[in-house]
Design a protein around this nucleic acid. Sequence first.
DNA 1: TACTTTTAATATGTAGAACATAACTACTAA
DNA 2: TTAGTAGTTATGTTCTACATATTAAAAGTA
Lengths: 226, 226
Amino acid sequence: MLNGIKPIAAKSMAERVEASLREYFAKENFKPGDPLPTELELAAALGVSRNVVREALSRFKMLGIIETKKKTGMVISNPDIMGTFEKVLTPEIIDESTLQDLFELRLVLEMGIADLLFIHKTPQDIAELEDIVARETKGDNFRINNEIAFHGKLYQMTGNETMKRFQTLLLPVFGYVMKLENKQYVSGRTTHKDLVRILKKGTVQEFKDGMASHLQPHLDRLRQTK
Amino acid sequence: MLNGIKPIAAKSMAERVEASLREYFAKENFKPGDPLPTELELAAALGVSRNVVREALSRFKMLGIIETKKKTGMVISNPDIMGTFEKVLTPEIIDESTLQDLFELRLVLEMGIADLLFIHKTPQDIAELEDIVARETKGDNFRINNEIAFHGKLYQMTGNETMKRFQTLLLPVFGYVMKLENKQYVSGRTTHKDLVRILKKGTVQEFKDGMASHLQPHLDRLRQTK
DNA sequence: TACTTTTAATATGTAGAACATAACTACTAA
DNA sequence: TTAGTAGTTATGTTCTACATATTAAAAGTA
């Protein structure tokens, strides 16, 4: 009956100003270092108070898209995207469905980094991994730390800083989901030790199979709850 | 000479208030739906003006961590993490090194989703993929669209909404990096058609090999610029 | 002239007051 | 009981004022 009718300007001024500024940045093709108009100029151009403009600008400052200096004014800058991710990724307030998705995302990354590992691996890396594996104990408390150390090292080996940081952010999610489901950190037939051996002397294909086998319990669970 | 000396409160009030509120939310173990103190109460408690508090709150509103209603006040809510990601992921202002990292990230995801695909695939999915492949033409303009349609369908098949949205966000990055390097969308020996066939009748291992072969040109490039 | 010091101008940072507006509450009248 | 009305409250928005850092111009000195 009321299709096609939508509320007019339900959003706050700050929100709309944020959107306007986004459009403006894109249209002007701003690059890092480019100067922006002053707050008062923006306020006048948008027909809102300086206060509202500042609320919108504050958002961009948080994202790292804008930097400011007194007197000099504001300039566009490179945002730190993983830093931003960190600001929202608090497992406690994220809905379970999204947490499950992120859990899967971690598994997918884990399955997919084999090629990068074989491209970037060095003897030092292997030595470090062997060291980590050697330190593995049977104690339950240490178990998780070893998990983190081992898999974290793998991500670090990719030489991809963004991916490494992403993995670090996903760690709490992983722990949270495990806790939610009262699951333990179980490994498949293939152990960390096996994986290191393959990484040292084996082939990419063998490593992919090994990792799949290592993560099998998690994949099985997905298959069940499909 | 001046080691150990660090500037006092170099950051703005809004930034510090943001940090304080973060701590506060964590310490109080707030969950979605929980009410927050009023702006004036927060301002008084923090010893800053309501203005500054609003700038900090505006940031949380953007992230979706806080929602507000007049008179009722503010409540914690589930943030939309991919929505937030979207707000920072503008390739034009992100530094090249991060873009390269994201490019690799996409490849890693692509390599890693095989297991999820075999868990969730349905006859309808296969039929759609066959449809997409059938529509592929030799025209260069259509080539990119087919790439997007094909790989996008794969992500959608995972049933992982977060991953699908993530991939959609990475698409512009992919395009941007290709443009930067004057590269073309080249495929390896294994074509989309081959992949669909394997997905229909083959095994997970075959599919993984096929995908690796399909993405081989990109991996080769990484190997070179290692 | 060259160089240092002072002064002024300017854009952001912070504070405070005021009023608008939506929404909840309680009271009142039919 | 119910409908309507008035009052209260927390956010939304605007305006003014002043602090502060930093650049640029002006003035003074060798």
